[in-house]
Design a protein around this nucleic acid. Sequence first.
DNA 1: AAGCAGGGGACGT
DNA 2: ACGTCCCCTGCT
Length: 279
Amino acid sequence: MKEIVSGNFNIADIAESGQCFRLTPLGRGEYRTVANGRVLTVSHSDAGARLDCDDADYEGLWSEYFDMGTDYSAFSADIPKEDVFLTKAAEFGKGIRILRQDPWEMLVSFIISQRKSIPAIRSSIEQLCDRYGMEIAAGIHAFPTPQALAKLPLERLNACSLGYRSEYVSAASRMVDGGALDLGAIGKLGDEELMGALLSVRGVGVKVAGCVMLFGYHRLAAFPRDVWINRIIDSEYGGSFDAEPYKGYAGVIQQYMFYYARSTAHRPLSFVKACDDRI
DNA sequence: AAGCAGGGGACGT
DNA sequence: ACGTCCCCTGCT
């Protein structure tokens, strides 16, 4: 058991921020994540969060995964007070951290995400993992390897509700498995070049590539624009938002905007009220 | 039960 | 730059 004392670590905020699909609520404020070929249970504590792991695993594995080396309070401190929306959004989402997730898992997950709602994305990914991922604990499976997916006939992928995305996932798997796309090597490229390399994958456009950069390669300058972000830019910023002032951590700003907008829109009134109470 | 909102990219022009 | 097609899931 490892307790993390930080005002900038809230596992519920992280789970709802749209960056991960395998961090799931177990009830009673507990969450389970599957990453690094391991399973981890995380719960709230008064001071921050409680991780169900020992010191060695924390130091060797989870500290990195939860990006504990980054000071998130510094980001919100930089937001100008005149930007009322962003100031509120950052306060609301202050428990968000950008997880350091696996590039391969992010690539496939965000290819699948296109034209799907978050519950639908989660469902597809769970089916893929349950059927083709290695069992790492009772009933819990790791994300499938490129090799495992590369050899599947399209019908197997279709059966996981991938729809027209099956061909994209299959092709990407074969690219990575065959060495045509080296996810480790492109991680050494600069932001522009990395974007270019990701865009060369069929089924990957600017938005998906941005998500892979931000969540799989921890390129905090990436600012993926999805329908929620565009909606905010329209309603709060008159149709154009300049992420330039936040260069270096625009992706963190994106997360605050996304999480705040989704939490206040189309939710039960009780939830919205609870949100207001926190500000 | 049935109707409907939700969600990016490829490709052709 | 813009229009069209892809076509199913989860929620109400």
